[in-house]
Design a protein around this nucleic acid. Structure first.
Lengths: 341, 341
DNA sequence: TTGAAAGCGCTAACAT
DNA sequence: ATGTTAGCGCTTTCAA
């Protein structure tokens, strides 16, 4: 079933059918209707490969998401999809796992799908100049940037929160409540990614408050995995009774940690305050509601798209936007309990 | 950058380059090495569209997921990806929203990507013969079946739990604990989907126990949306004080409901037991841990794949598998409290 | 072992 | 308004 079959069926040429299919004006209304009905009757669907092959440019943008299951990305992807459509582009979505390298994928996508631009959602922070050269179309990093890399800031765009500063703010919030023994739950302290940045923000806050970092209060759970976050938090709770607050670098880790604290008989927030960063939907439903710095998820998506489309239409150049978070006051933070009184 | 460029660069013909790229045997080792290096140097990536166009068959399977953000699907998708790869096929994944109709998408995919088989993850239950005719390749419905449709069982496969029976079992579990005023939280009672099936299982259980259904205890929240589940549960909690248990048709709805009950001052499980179906990771971390019938998520995925690949290799025909759930005893169900004593 | 050439199905000039 | 035709980049006979 090809366009030729439809043409023969209608007694017209393939170009006429093609015109109807692509809404070109120069077709007699009568013929247009006839073709459309033939398409329905024959259940004809154009071959995308052939179409892609012939079209040299196709107004499509790519979105590569690293770490599919992450609930934090869901609303961002939604926002991007809507914004891309509104801008008159088509979106090619590609999910990869956290083990895959997004740049390998990007090379594939851009060259085989003739993309005009690219959005990377979640990715490494340490691209090299070499690697970036492989991406020969404009791209914007969403929710992350090149914080550890060496590439030129004018070669790409980014939209994200200031991870280190926001982590600082979260921990600062705990310190203001009188906490000084503050544990941190991160996936890693030195993986050149968001985890490392937020961990550094934690250290910054301690330092500014004149608190000596305590290595025994640093929990690394490896990946963004609730199971290991739970285990490691239980373990620390058994080993150490003295910490009065916990900063988790993401909502999901915080939720696992709250459960672990509970299972060790420690109440949140009375015995241990908890704060996190992200603001996923689920953390609205924990008991108590998680106190967290919510990222402007929709805005992260829409800004990424508009920066990209502006570049493509010549309206602007590469830029790096840092958006702010909003402190969502839940019920997991309270002033430190004074045991001496 | 096309295959022609690589050929020119090496001073060979395009066919030779193509042979190298596709690991054909008849190429001089010397030339093979030369071409491979040229590919690296020039950063050449074959155009997928052109490749797809010319290849008539490509050993690829399609996976259409309806309702991307659903955390329940994440492990299933993972299992399918691994199983498909292990079986030597390539997977083409397509996400659609719950508003889209999966069949429209399927028509697109199968005809434009030359798929050999198809897995539908989450979908309508009421396909018609007409619609199914559009899918001209073997397909298997994962987590759902044709429970409300009229299509021939020999025309497709399905792998799912017995939704109605499992809902029955969940509610039965509550009844055994002495509960008789049991509320139900569903997205709809008559949407011809999983919601309706599980709602019917709830009714079955009441009936068998001689309990008169109470329309006032039926909550429909429209979609699988935690926000509306929360609101409607709060509302019911204010209106009615008499129900002692709640059956939610999914874990996510149950989590929202637990929060709502809490915010209305009702303790789980002392004042209201809660049970659900699905068994997502997140519900391990609610406080108390959600009692739920966990679906065999990995098995749902792997069985779907092996049924499909068996059909494709002529080793078997269409079949319909009903897998069982496992009751995960959390802490959200307890015997009904006797107010009279 | 290699090259030349015929398509795969479609779109977009260019004719008519 | 409609038809003819030249590719898009690739794989795969068929010859050499």
């Amino acid at each position: 079933m090809t366009i030729k079959d439809v043409a023969d069926y209608c007694g017209v040429s393939v170009s006429t059918v093609s015109r109807v299919l692509n809404n070109h004006p120069d077709v007699r209304e009568e013929v247009r209707v006839q073709v459309m009905e033939a398409v329905k009757t024959l259940h004809y669907v154009p071959n995308a490969a052939a179409r892609d092959l012939v079209k040299t440019t196709n107004d499509s943008l790519g979105l590569v998401v690293r770490g599919a299951g992450n609930p934090f990305y869901t609303p961002i992807i939604h926002a991007i999809e809507k914004a891309v459509e509104a801008a008159g582009y088509e979106l090619v979505l590609h999910q990869i796992t956290t083990e895959d390298d997004e740049l390998d994928d990007v090379a594939q996508l851009t060259r085989s799908k003739r993309l005009n631009g690219l959005i990377l959602l979640g990715g490494r922070f340490n691209y090299t100049k070499e690697e970036v050269k492989l991406i020969d179309i404009p791209f914007v990093c969403c929710t992350f940037a090149n914080n550890f890399g060496t590439i030129d800031a004018t070669d790409f765009s980014s939209v994200s929160i200031g991870d280190r500063a926001e982590a600082y703010r979260a921990v600062r919030h705990l310190i203001k409540q009188g906490h000084r023994k503050i544990a941190v739950l991160t996936s890693s302290t030195n993986d050149r990614s968001i985890s490392e940045l937020r961990y550094n923000g934690y250290l910054d806050a301690l330092k500014d408050a004149g608190i000596e970092p305590d290595e025994g209060l640093v929990m690394q759970c490896g990946r963004f995995d609730m199971g290991s976050a739970y285990e490691i938090t239980r373990q620390l709770s058994r080993e150490r009774q003295d910490f009065t607050a916990l900063f988790a670098i993401s909502d999901t880790l915080a939720i696992a940690a709250m459960k672990a604290l509970h299972d060790e008989g420690r109440r949140v927030p009375e015995d241990c305050s908890v704060i996190a960063i992200d603001g996923i939907d689920m953390s609205l439903y924990t008991i108590p509601t998680l106190t967290t710095l919510t990222q402007p998820k929709e805005e992260l998506g829409t800004r990424s798209v508009s920066i990209l489309t502006d570049i493509l239409s010549g309206k602007g150049g590469h830029m790096h936007e840092r958006l702010g978070t909003v402190l969502r006051e839940g019920g997991t933070v309270c002033p430190v309990q004074d045991f001496t009184s």
